[in-house]
Design a protein around this nucleic acid. Structure first.
Lengths: 243, 243
DNA sequence: CGGTGGCATTATTTCGAAAATACCCTAATA
DNA sequence: TATTAGGGTATTTTCGAAATAATGCCACCG
């Protein structure tokens, strides 16, 4: 349980727990809204209070958990409103990052796109229909999308993008069991990569936006029933519908 | 010292220390690049290790401090490269947020702009030439800019904006003693507010972008000497004199 | 019967000391 | 003289227990 010890132990125990918990939240091992009791976590991750608190603090700054004063921590709740808002902001950020990357990318950038696409594509073929349930494929998919924008030359943009990506990824994982296979999504990846390598900014931006928005639409379509009743999107968040 | 106990004690001691440290970093009481020793901080804020670690963890997630495994924490260094990147991303985010706010803003939004501008303007007149050194004016200035975008209906956009704003504010504070008075900046605020209230999206976006970029240009122009030697913007930098 | 106040229980938060790690200075060797 | 190995000090990181706050329960009162 918990696991994916793949996350490569950070030098410090806090960092290690942080990475493991982040993975567990994204992969819904720790479920949205779930109360995070220290006693439980202490056993689960085999550490003491201090590293746990540190990890939880950082995660709350990433919006993967929410901290309630004197009442502990909770896995960040999910809601359609949150997903929609997330999607809108991701579109803004990804488009900007991709545009800059295409403008500035050098040969190393091109090579990175080709190589990461290749690895993702190969694994997909190897795994067959249910590729998207694989943890490893998630990693390669993330690496591919990162490769696309990695040349944008803006640390801040990349960092913001990464955090948004991870939160969105949680929604994908959460719904993956209920979706039909997404074979056509792979064709999209190829198309996006090609547009980027062709330095066709307009096409690439259009494609990446559609890619993101269609993913969200599919999540809502096939896994909408997993979300809490529409009105109360979880705690402390008024938030009307977005998008 | 340290303080501005105005930050309104959070319910929890960690939150309190977090807020106080954030203010101290933004106001350069804790200087860029400075090593944050626990023993020192313990005395400075009168708390123990645990809340300190928690606060530092959160601040590192906000990029106001950087954590080095097994080597403690350091106040985030400053550099022209960082300031420029920050500025570019802020422009992207502020423009988007402002556009949405203008599109969606209701009367409460309009009232918020008018009221926050009024308060900022009054205080400025009361304080005279050196208004911009005032802590209180900083708060009202922040409230005004927040009011402009508050109706954008995107929690994520607002949160990202706020964090970027705070980091940029550190650069302003760091350079404020060296700048000539910025009287004309106040005219800009009025112009921006008017454009927003007139629902003139194009004008408002153009003005806010210029407002942000010119501020950065002035910081570099008048306080460029405070930055570490251009090439290595990096951390672990003893840091020249600041403030 | 419904509501309210107080007490016991549970969980979180904070503390200071112990363990682990990095840093610095000295000395020995090549 | 330069380089490295050793050992002692300074700091960070982790621990488990004490303090503090919240929760649920039950008796008591209206």
């Amino acid at each position: 349980m918990s696991d994916t010890q793949k996350t490569a132990g950070s030098e410090t125990r806090s960092g290690d727990v942080l990475n493991r918990m982040r993975q567990d939240i994204i992969n819904c091992v720790l479920k949205p809204g779930e109360k995070l009791k220290f006693e439980t976590l202490r056993n689960l991750y085999s550490v003491s209070f201090s590293p746990l608190r540190e990890a939880l603090s950082r995660l709350s700054a990433e919006n993967l958990v929410v901290a309630q004063d004197q009442k502990g921590f909770v896995v960040a709740p999910v809601s359609i409103a949150d997903l929609n808002d997330l999607t809108d902001v991701r579109v803004l950020i990804e488009r900007e990052a991709l545009a800059r990357a295409i403008q500035r990318g050098d040969e190393a950038w091109e090579a990175g796109i080709l190589s990461s696409f290749y690895r993702m594509d190969r694994l997909q073929q190897k795994l067959g229909k249910e590729y998207y349930l694989s943890e490893e494929w998630s990693r390669l998919h993330g690496a591919f999308h990162l490769a696309l924008v990695s040349a944008c030359a803006s640390p801040n943009l990349l960092e913001i993008r990464q955090k948004l990506y991870e939160r969105a990824h949680r929604y994908r994982r959460m719904s993956s069991r209920f979706r039909p296979q997404w074979r056509e999504k792979e064709a999209e990846h190829k198309t996006i990569a090609d547009a980027a390598l062709d330095r066709d900014v307009d096409a690439a931006l259009r494609l990446i936006e559609r890619h993101i928005r269609e993913t969200t639409e599919n999540v809502i379509k096939y896994a909408g029933h997993l979300f809490p009743p529409t009105d109360q999107a979880g705690l402390a968040d008024p938030q009307t519908d977005a998008a």
